[in-house]
Design a protein around this nucleic acid. Structure first.
Lengths: 334, 334
DNA sequence: CCGTAAAATTTTAACGTGTGCATAAATTTA
DNA sequence: TAAATTTATGCACACGTTAAAATTTTACGG
């Protein structure tokens, strides 16, 4: 049905070998024959069979984009920004394959023949097993978003620690002393990094970290809501709260309003991520912009060059966050 | 490197054909040999080469999930809900391939050999060209979210018209007479359906539709914001606004607050979609839940059965929306 | 224990493409 | 003009798998 190089060969009165070479711009082919063949190919609407090609070339023309999980724990904005970033870089000659690691019971179907390269948007330490498997299979990989100890792996992360530090600093310099933190999913590297950055700011300004001002959440709105309930129930509630992401900040704001209180007049709130709605929240949310789309673009580019030139190595790229001051923080007079 | 059926054949002292049959559970193979071969295969860690398989089977083991566009016009929640829905149904033996139609300059690379089936989350009439191509290639396809006239195509949509009708009715029954609508992207079927449903409610209650109460937006927050500016600048601003999606509703609420007005006290607002943040908005957003995840699950299932049994046809499944009353609508006393 | 049907397996070919080697044609050199 | 070299093309095989045809082995009735 669909024309093959052999069909073209017949039409052009040459061997299929010549056709193959002509279409791949081999220097062994005379210019006139190449042109003739290209013309015929275009005319009959030839498209290469990638399965045959892959079989003989030992390449798959497939880039795998993996998440820790697609089903849960990944916020929509994060998820779609990642795909957008990668998609914008990966040429259509590649298949863009998307799955969650937790969709797999075992990894045997993930091997060299099936993936030219893998981009992992990693959120959890538990991904290490997957990474190990991929490396062992000799598949080029780029890990995004979570720092990997193995320095032979290309690693692109955002500087969450510094971002959280800036958030904390901003609150302190606005005059706040009683500052709480609502944390992300336990075990996620980002959770830890953001906590560390936040605490660094406290230490730098000699503000004691109180245990009851550190509430753990899980990055979703509901958990932010619940965490804030705990905080407002304290004998001495904080005047400001750093939420480890915007979703939880939105949830936390909800609690504040339900208590008949105001943001930022009664409680100041800072988020993290700068997700789509943070600008349109009421009040608009002061937050730390995390350049997810940039990270994934960058990651995709690195992967492509890694596939072409496998020597590259020892790369850790840290992309800076950006502090965005909006309306959810109140300046206290001292 | 990686073991093939021939390697296994040698180890088992049989021909590679026997191995192939044994691993595919052909009834032509004696039980004992099957077992022996299965054992060896497991032991050497055999995984089939899908390129070779595809080449001879004329199947790709790839499901294509296409969007109208990945880069723009698709909200995060919508995008990720779709992928989640499909992902939950498609077995890992399939490649899940994701792209936007607008990533392609021409469709020649989209053909039967490369896709066992295609799921299209369609938002625009402009997709018809793509659909036509796919159908012409003989690729099984399921179109989601937008009604297609061609009844030979499996089509799964949400009943947006009825949802919008319910939204309008709710506002009217709460006592509102001056009701505006902020519309979605022009040319999107959903835009038209929601407008139609809304107007139907107006007509049913004998409320004249005013031209200056119909503002066009483009489904993003910013456009909702701007549309609401127009509405509030009117000599007689509406007391209620139906926004064609939640994103625009959030934008519209922002405008209201900036004017020093209240939702719902001064203006009532209804959205559409029930996206993640609508419950946590302040006030929480009354909206119409559109079951995107359900639609995509259902669509994926239909596609799988269509691939197996190509006789099925003339299917139009309409999934009902659900009206969700929350806090953004005020009951007027008459 | 032979002949034959059924069952189990092997042999051969095919899917569509790329590549090493041989060879024919064109060009240069002597 | 013949020999040496370069250039252009074709032949045959390989990639890993399934399927059709051919063959061998097993089972069974007389």
């Amino acid at each position: 049905m669909a024309p093959t190089i052999k069909d073209i060969a017949k039409l052009a009165n040459v061997s299929h070998t010549t056709v193959s070479r002509a279409l791949n711009n081999s220097p062994l082919i005379k210019e006139v024959t190449r042109k003739k063949i290209a013309e015929i190919a275009a005319q009959v609407g030839y498209v290469p069979n990638y399965n045959a090609k892959s079989l003989v070339m030992q390449r798959s023309y497939t880039i795998g984009l993996f998440f820790t999980s697609i089903a849960k724990g990944t916020s929509s904005g994060f998820f779609s920004d990642t795909i957008r970033g990668v998609n914008s870089v990966i040429d259509v000659e590649y298949n863009l394959f998307i799955r969650g690691i937790d969709d797999y019971a075992e990894y045997s179907s993930i091997h060299r023949k099936r993936f030219d390269g893998i981009i992992l948007m990693s959120q959890s330490e538990a991904d290490n097993k997957f990474i190990y498997h991929v490396v062992q299979q000799g598949i080029p990989i780029v890990v995004l978003n979570r720092q990997i100890d193995d320095r032979s792996i290309i690693n692109i992360i955002s500087n969450d620690r510094e971002g959280a530090y800036n958030a904390g600093k901003h609150l302190i310099e606005a005059g706040h002393q009683d500052i709480a933190i609502i944390e992300g999913v336990e075990g996620f590297k980002s959770t830890q990094e953001r906590r560390d950055g936040f605490i660094k700011a406290l230490i730098e300004y000699n503000i004691p970290a109180r245990n009851d001002y550190m509430i753990s959440g899980n990055y979703d709105m509901q958990s932010g809501y619940e965490a804030m309930v705990q905080l407002l129930d304290l004998e001495k509630p904080p005047t400001a709260v750093f939420c480890s992401n915007d979703d939880m900040a939105i949830g936390a704001m909800k609690t504040v309003f339900e208590r008949g209180l105001q943001v930022p007049n009664d409680v100041s709130i800072v988020g993290f991520d700068d997700s789509g709605f943070s600008l349109f929240a009421n009040p608009s949310l002061t937050t730390v912009k995390r350049p997810i789309e940039k990270i994934s673009e960058q990651g995709a580019r690195k992967l492509l060059s890694l596939i072409k030139e496998p020597i590259e190595n020892d790369v850790l790229i840290s992309i800076d966050t950006e502090f965005i001051a909006r309306e959810s923080v109140r300046k206290l007079q001292k």
